[in-house]
């Protein structure tokens, strides 16, 4: 598939303070790409650099082969953008805002616009200052989608939306993907990313720590295995196994809990030597994978510098 978004060593520094450092990734056409990270990790800085609002200190970013800084006007013809913090003229109504931005984008399909408004249950007659935070978000979402851009860049799009509207938003993203268009979506709501994205990147303290397909990230999973034995749990038999960590007994001493990285073959073979009552293996969610990168002393595990394209 053709690459639509490409960053190479993208770096942004604010004086002595950190912005983003050496961020490199690509997004292919038709992908829904999730950008995960806690607050202040550098998600918004990356997005604002892609939008040509910030000038990279080093490296470059390209959208559709166009330089995001040098050719930002042409880049923006390809993009629908929803900023993390929406600031619009408080004295205009929702309808006026959408019409204004429609004109600035060279016109939009009015029937599609009305359809979006209806789907999100937005009242366009009210002034922006009178909207709740969720309704302000809806205005932002509609203005990003309304011109059917080939690429949507959405910074924490569902912040403030109620669950019903979040579901509607997920459906809208899926439709965009079905049409072969591309979505770059930052979030810290992992369930949302897991549900809508094909690939994800994890950013931490301004540096990308992992990029890969959602399934690939799950592949480095660490299963949580709980085995209940008929007799006392043989702790030592499992401690020595490769890929097994945190072996501990729980309850009456018949149950063992452990974390297993990689395959479960060794653990099952070792367990087969004893009488087993139950064996439960829990596959980690993307949330578990994500939290691994931020656990402990806050340092990413050594393998995280590996980037899967």
């Amino acid at each position: 598939m053709t690459t639509l978004v490409e960053t190479q060593g993208l770096t942004k520094r604010y004086g002595s303070s950190r912005g983003i450092d050496d961020v490199t990734f690509t997004i292919a056409e038709g992908e829904v790409f999730g950008f995960l990270g806690p607050n202040g990790a550098g998600k918004t800085t990356t997005i604002r650099t892609l939008m040509g609002l910030l000038r990279p200190t080093e490296g470059n970013a390209r959208i559709g082969g166009l330089d995001c800084w040098g050719q930002s006007t042409d880049v923006k013809r390809l993009v629908g953008y929803l900023p993390g913090e929406l600031a619009l003229d408080p004295s205009l109504t929702g309808g006026q805002i959408l019409e204004y931005f429609g004109h600035l984008r060279g016109g939009v399909d009015q029937s599609y616009l009305k359809q979006l408004i209806e789907r999100l249950g937005l009242d366009p007659t009210r002034k922006f200052r009178q909207y709740s935070s969720g309704n302000k978000r809806k205005i932002g979402i509609v203005q990003a989608f309304m011109h059917r851009p080939p690429l949507l860049i959405l910074d924490e799009p569902t912040n403030g939306l109620d669950p019903l509207n979040q579901q509607e938003f997920d459906r809208m993203v899926n439709e965009v993907r079905a049409e072969g268009r591309t979505v770059f979506l930052s979030s810290h709501i992992l369930g949302e990313v897991e549900q809508t994205c094909t690939r994800v990147a994890i950013i931490r303290e301004g540096r990308l720590v992992r990029v890969g397909a959602v399934t690939e990230l799950k592949d480095i999973k660490r299963h949580d295995v709980t085995i209940t034995f008929a007799d006392a749990a043989p702790v030592e038999a499992f401690k020595a196994l490769a890929g097994v960590d945190n072996v501990e007994t729980v309850g009456d001493g018949h149950t063992l809990r452990m974390a297993v990285s990689g395959g479960l073959d060794g653990v099952i073979k070792a367990a087969a030597q004893y009488r087993i009552v139950t064996l439960i293996s829990q596959e980690p969610s993307l949330e578990d994978v994500f939290l691994r990168y931020y656990e402990g002393d806050g340092k990413a595990p050594s393998e995280v510098s590996h980037v899967v394209h």
């Binding site: 006007t73 923006k76 600031a87």
Partner: peptide, 14 residues
Amino acid sequence: EDGLQELVLATPQP
């Protein structure tokens, strides 16, 4: 400062 230029500059207006 109030962020009112953000979305305007996200449109294809130089």
